[in-house]
């Protein structure tokens, strides 16, 4: 029992379960899933479907955060990616052709990869702080997206393109399968190869890793490329969902929700150890919360207040001060301020 309590995913999973239970009690139809025309419908299915863009972005963000970085540009990259895809489809002679959509999606994702590589270059080669380096693209990216669409919201009518976000395969939404594929790909690459542990090593102690011969530049660079690519795919899904490229609204604030998902999943913003499963749960928590807030009749524009409360609760609960307080309650013999000063004491103990 004690071990379960201490597991790093204990709190995230518990939070998600509590959210689902509360929702189910408040509105039993929440867990109802109905089969209609060979498709499953229900609030839970909606959560799976709607969480896809955030899922992709949060996965990339997890890897970047593991390297001690952060990628603020993901929303802007989504906007660019959507703009590229929609513009290609819009300008082509046959917007409804699968080939056109295929080319558009590939080009959009490649452009995003290049944008990710640009971020990675600034961070790993020029050694610019990640917050600032990605801020550049966060600022400029939407401008680029607006230029691509000519300042308008480009809309298209393309069956195959709409299929990406709203289509169904094997009873379930296509977007959900895209999420699954991304999760599987990231998890496989990180955990089946040595990339995961080398990434953690770079995130925990960059200098020690360099001296141990780890090619940290490549690993950091790669992390931003992954993040850019996944953000590009997210941008395509977003654009497919609204059948339009909206350079201003696409991916707005998604970087914040993605960071929140990563933190909720138990990955420290200080870098190092990361948890893909944790991030996945974090995304579902956010999406379920969003659904709950909507159900409560709160206008979605007001939902940030709830997320602010969540952020504060999570960071306060994670803080040494709170842990110290909890530890004191649990263990009266524990020294009063020991938890707060652990870091300094390690220094002396060396």
């Amino acid at each position: 029992m004690n071990r379960i309590y201490k597991h790093r995913l204990f709190w995230p999973v518990l939070s998600l379960l509590v959210l689902i239970v509360v929702n189910t009690i408040a509105r039993p139809q929440f867990i109802e899933i109905t089969l209609q025309d060979g498709r499953l419908y229900g609030a839970l299915i909606d959560i799976l479907r709607n969480s896809a863009p955030l899922m992709l972005v949060a996965l990339g963000m997890t890897i970047v955060i593991a390297t001690r970085g952060i990628d603020l540009s993901v929303g802007a990259v989504m906007a660019v990616s959507g703009a590229v895809a929609l513009t290609i489809i819009d300008r082509s002679g046959s917007p409804g052709a699968v080939g056109t959509v295929f080319v558009a999606v590939i080009v959009a994702i490649l452009v995003s990869l290049v944008l990710g590589a640009w971020n990675g270059f600034l961070v790993s080669v020029l050694k610019i702080q990640p917050i600032i380096a990605t801020l550049v693209l966060m600022l400029a990216g939407r401008g680029v997206a607006l230029l691509i669409t000519g300042g308008f919201i480009t809309t298209v009518n393309s069956e195959p393109f709409a299929f990406i976000a709203s289509g169904y395969v094997l009873l379930l939404p296509v977007a959900f399968f895209i999420s699954i594929a991304a999760i599987a790909a990231v998890a496989l690459v990180e955990r089946r190869t040595a990339l995961g542990v080398l990434t953690e090593s770079v995130g925990i102690n960059p200098e020690a890793s360099r001296l141990a011969g780890v090619r940290s530049r490549g690993i950091i660079w790669g992390a931003y490329m992954v993040s850019g690519t996944l953000a590009g795919a997210a941008g395509v899904i977003y654009a497919s969902n609204i059948k339009a490229a909206d350079a201003n609204a696409a991916g707005l604030f998604i970087e914040l929700y993605a960071i929140l998902a990563v933190v909720l999943g138990g990955t420290s913003l200080a870098g190092g150890k990361f948890s893909i499963a944790g991030t996945v749960i974090g995304v579902f928590i956010i999406q379920t919360l969003e659904s709950t807030i909507l159900f409560l009749g709160v206008p979605s524009a007001q939902s940030p207040v709830f997320f602010a409360v969540v952020v504060v609760v999570v960071v306060v609960a994670q803080s040494q001060r709170m842990r110290g307080a909890i530890a004191r309650v649990g263990d009266a013999f524990r020294k009063q301020d020991a938890p707060e000063r652990d870091d300094e004491k390690v220094e002396v103990a060396r």
Binding site: I259, L260, A301, S303, V305, A308, V311, V312, V315, Q320
Partner: peptide, 17 residues
């Protein structure tokens, strides 16, 4: 001991909401 980035992010959400 929350990173300024995250703490002010919470402030952003709160104020916008």
């Amino acid at each position: 001991n929350v990173q300024p980035f995250i703490a002010s992010l919470a402030g952003l959400f709160l104020a916008r909401g």
